[in-house]
Design a protein around this nucleic acid. Structure first.
Lengths: 176, 176
DNA sequence: CATACGGTAACGTTGCGTGACCGTAC
DNA sequence: CGTACGGTCACGCAACGTTACCGTAT
């Protein structure tokens, strides 16, 4: 059975040495053994534990919650995961509020006109807001219905050319 | 002209005393004057500055960025706001990845069946994912098309009654 | 005199990164 | 003998919250 040195194990998961030192300190992943000269020796089961830790970290769980998950069974585990799911939902909603606030601020600063610098920014924002093709279409249609003039102006401001703007107008109103 | 004491100003914006002490320490909002006995006296313009600080904080800007925004003009200001907009987009996308990971984990743990505890959780998750009514419909329709059996089972697991489940099946397939 | 307010200073939180300083493996 | 690795502190970041201890206003 092979042992991993701290840096080798770190590299396996693309972590830093100090991360593993930290996990050791807080007891999340203590090195099972030590060499004669006091070097940490990680075993295969340490590696497996770290693999789970990394997975849960990618899911955004706190190290504390991960510790709980690894200690306890599925009953508590599911509860922890579900709570994290709820927290993510709350976070996303909060971030969307922030998006709206910032867009409003950008509008205000340039008295009446939207001043988002580039199309890519706007689109990535809409994408992030959960907009897929059909959502985009609905949004453009709604904008067109409520304020066709401003809609057109926005398209121009986003750097969308005349031709493309016409196409979007057509597309967003076609089968309705 | 009236001065505000630290706690009175804090209460005006629903902040704590220590928050204002902190803003003073880091130079974000230093109290303009001090009383004879060394008490902080905040002026009206301090109040206005704090108002802007709070607004930007609600938009998720860091205190450092807020400091920049308050010091510099609109040119830099817009750049800061737009960068924040981009960061929010990235964050939301990351959170959605986390949602998918956790849902996958919950699936795995209960070999094949989704085990999300309640309907409200699922719906808030979908909502957060940017699902509106039409998105929901599309999603249900797709699920129904790919795996009607599992779709039905999911609806039951979410605590949706027989009657409602039938309604959703009908609704998601109606005009298609 | 009580108590509600003010002040400063220091430590705790989360998840590490960074650096110092020193020993060890090859 | 060099240098690439290992070890243990200890401090720094963000944005405060939380004592603690002491002075002041009323």
């Amino acid at each position: 059975m092979k042992n991993y040195s701290i840096s080798r194990l770190a590299k396996l998961f693309d972590l830093s040495r100090s991360t593993l030192l930290y996990y050791d300190r807080i007891g999340l992943l203590p090195a099972t053994k030590r060499s004669g000269s006091g070097y940490r020796l990680y075993t295969e089961s340490d590696r497996e534990r770290l693999e789970r830790i990394c997975l849960y970290r990618e899911a955004g769980l706190s190290l504390n919650d991960i510790d709980l998950l690894l200690k306890n069974g599925d009953t508590l585990g599911n509860a922890v995961l579900e709570e994290r799911l709820r927290a993510i939902g709350r976070q996303i909603l909060a971030l969307k509020d922030q998006q709206r606030m910032i867009v409003a601020m950008l509008k205000i600063k340039c008295d009446g006109t939207v001043a988002v610098a580039d199309k890519a920014l706007w689109i990535s924002m809409m994408r992030a807001a959960g907009m897929d093709e059909s959502g985009m279409k609905k949004w453009h249609a709604e904008f067109e219905r409520q304020a066709p003039e401003a809609h057109y102006e926005l398209l121009r401001l986003l750097g969308i050319e005349e031709a493309e703007a016409q196409a979007i107008k057509a597309w967003s109103t076609e089968s309705r």
